[in-house]
Design a protein around this nucleic acid. Structure first.
Lengths: 225, 225
DNA sequence: TTAGTTACTGAACACTCTGTTCGATTTAAT
DNA sequence: ATTAAATCGAACAGAGTGTTCAGTAACTAA
């Protein structure tokens, strides 16, 4: 079994997955913070340098000057470390996204975020690691979008396409645009990409939810469903 | 280096990547056909049984009763073997798809194909292997769709979204729907899925290409691009 | 400052899987 | 029947993973 950072099992019981935390004041041990950060930074640097797939655990702990066993005390494997880097983004966006705002403009935030970390994402796009990130992002964006969507579907029983499918569709479409954008070295601005995303996706989504917009929707799908 | 299936290098020169073929009659050696088929079948069975990622090369050659070196004489690695299975589908669809037909109905063929191989795809969806297949399929579908799209974009210079992006978008959207469908155990028919796909995707695509349909497209994207 | 607790070190280890090599053997094509 | 090519299979080197544990360092709370 994995060597936990606690010897006393009592703490473990109340402390699901939060290793290295002082339970009284809920303050993390400095060493833990330092180790996790240094490992994350090492991985980020190595991804840009040689790509995620070619980076080994040995590379990471060498770069970070961290003992092998320490690595495994914090992360199940390389993938877990990578994912942990995106937990921050997720938390950040959760706070931002929930308050007001047109749901389509969440896309802008994401395009801009990706743009500001271009070298990192560029090094992953098209590889396994990008698929991993996509999958991870999908889960969380799906939940986000679904909430944003609920009030927009009025009749709900009249909707030609289920809410789940529409939400899945929106997230996948966004990630597709994002992937294209990074893959082609960002030939447009984040604002332009958001515009294209809206233009491509919104009409179909409105139609799928049975929302009447300014647009007349007759005769669109003759043979459909 | 890899031990080629030919000792005479002269043949190799005229025979790019086509090992085990008689150059005079262009007929493949029976043993080669047999080996490739049996390996492919073994992998397919193992994917359903224990998943692609947990299947090792050893598993495959044990199941297939094939020597280790033989495996590597035919395929660079496990991934190459998996992909080779989809080359047949690709060739099949290329012949079907190019002749006439509404391009949206290519989707129906694909939904039906996936449906008829449900256990196999179900065992992969959501995993690494599925991402691999998606990526592989994306390349080929992109080229296919792009050809289908060209005659539809009239002005071409007036298009708000480039042909490349639209094609990428269509393929990604389709794969998203397909993924959802398999992941949720095919709660709709292939025809229904094709209908939803059309309904969700077509309006945006028409708008993106600047194609005037029966639908009026004013005021849709106020802030866009 | 100190006592007690927890995290980190780092080498050693067992393990799994990969991809290659090569001489002997079998099989297909003609 | 002859020849050329494919297959066999054991052996091998190598890379990487994840675990263990006793010793050391660093942090926290008092």
């Amino acid at each position: 079994m994995r060597p936990g950072l606690f010897t006393s099992e009592q703490l473990q019981m109340f402390c699901v997955g939060k290793k290295g935390w002082n339970m009284k004041k809920m303050k993390p041990d400095r060493r833990v913070v330092r180790t996790r950060r240094i490992l994350s930074e090492a991985l980020t640097a190595l991804i840009v340098e040689k790509g995620y797939e070619k980076t080994t655990v040995q590379d990471i702990i060498d770069r970070a000057n961290v003992g092998r066993s320490t690595f495994y005390a914090h992360f199940l494997d390389k993938d877990a470390l990578l994912r942990s880097g995106f937990d921050h983004l997720r938390d950040e966006l959760s706070k931002k996204g929930i308050g007001g705002k047109e749901s389509w403009d969440v896309a802008l935030d994401l395009f801009q975020h990706a743009g500001s970390h271009y070298p990192l994402y560029k090094a992953m796009v098209g590889k396994q690691s990008w698929n991993m990130i996509q999958q991870y992002a999908h889960k969380f964006l799906f939940a986000l979008i679904k909430e944003h969507l609920k009030p927009k579907a009025p009749a709900m029983k009249k909707a030609p396409v289920s809410l789940d499918i529409v939400a899945h569709y929106i997230v996948s479409s966004f990630l597709a645009l994002l992937t294209w954008w990074l893959d082609h070295n960002m030939p447009y601005t984040a604002e332009q990409m958001t515009g294209m995303f809206k233009r491509l996706t919104k009409p179909g989504v409105d139609a799928g939810l049975g929302v009447e917009t300014e647009t007349f929707l007759k005769g669109h799908c003759g043979k459909g469903i």
